[in-house]
Design a protein around this nucleic acid. Structure first.
Lengths: 172, 172
DNA sequence: CCGCCCATGTAAATGGTTACATGATTCA
DNA sequence: TGAATCATGTAACCATTTACATGGGCGG
């Protein structure tokens, strides 16, 4: 999955600014994709050149001007092509696992610290996902989207439980 | 985490060829990193230029010649720097979640198919991880490495369980 | 005789990161 | 007064992917 697919997906619902797209990336779908401004604006530009999205500029006196992007028919076509494609590959890269795996010369203390940090990180992610979920439920979220959030939570929680058990085992 | 870190980590144990590094990537640590020849050979070349690894060529008559790479002191230094660095960021990108999240116009049948495919994929990953684990336990695997494998399994299994529950709910 | 295992690499393109650059408004 | 929110973008660099290119040995 590429940045362009995600952006087209977001614009499918309604037109957005680059800023708003970033908000959604950071707050709503960060558990299965992450992207930054450095990707968003160049990609929007490219999509516009290709006729997949169109831009409307709103002059604002109080705030900086807005560029609102909406998806075109060609854009919808590309999105549907992606949505109907067969492959569901995934990428998972974990510095935590890497450090444990190759950390032969880490002291027990360092290992415990590392695991605790991972637990803390995951617990934060769980908290923010859960509080977001509550917010979205008020505003309406589709059943499918609920399933994806649940997936994220299930994954995070399983890891936290597992690591807590391992920590205890290490301390004995 | 970058390819170079992983390669240095692998060479820490013992010298290896590019081919062997690829085997380890595909079979032993694919649940937290993935890399291909297109990354391995260029990275080895760069590491060699930087003095982080050194190459020894073994002439073989029956098979193609081997280039065996071993880690140098400078290489170990870089690896330890990485291992002792603070951040444990992770990357997770999932086409499956993306397709569900944006798949408003998918039919129920398509959704069921999609979920089943994800379950199948994960079950295969669980199987291969479990059979690998058995193999490694005969040859010796560190406690920390066991923890990482367990982490991968816990994560995969949680997702499979979750998706099976959701499937049932969908079918009612 | 076919396919898998062993074994090495390059070149071009892509996609994305990082760092930089700017600036008004609002709230505590 | 300083941080957060809203708002946009570029340029250089980087790491990796994809596609290509080669070839002998071995087992069934």
């Amino acid at each position: 999955m590429k940045g362009r697919d995600v952006i087209l997906g977001i614009l499918q619902n309604k037109p957005r600014t680059g800023y708003e797209i970033n908000e959604i990336l950071q707050n709503q779908i960060s558990y299965f994709y992450d992207g930054t401004y450095g990707m968003i604006y160049p990609t929007l530009k490219k999509l516009e050149r290709e006729g997949k999205v169109k831009k409307e500029t709103i002059i604002q006196d109080d705030k900086p001007n807005k560029n609102i992007f909406s998806i075109t028919d060609e854009g919808k076509e590309e999105l549907n092509e992606y949505l109907n494609s067969e492959d569901i590959s995934e990428v998972f890269k974990s510095d935590f696992l890497m450090k444990l795996f190759f950390g032969d010369n880490l002291s027990k203390k360092q290992v415990v610290k590392l695991i605790n940090k991972e637990i803390e990180t995951k617990e934060n992610q769980i908290q923010s996902l859960e509080s977001s979920l509550k917010k979205w439920q008020l505003q309406g979220i589709s059943d499918l989207q609920k399933i994806t959030v649940g997936y994220g939570l299930a994954q995070y929680k399983a890891v936290v439980n597992y690591l807590k058990v391992q920590l205890k085992a290490l301390e004995d």
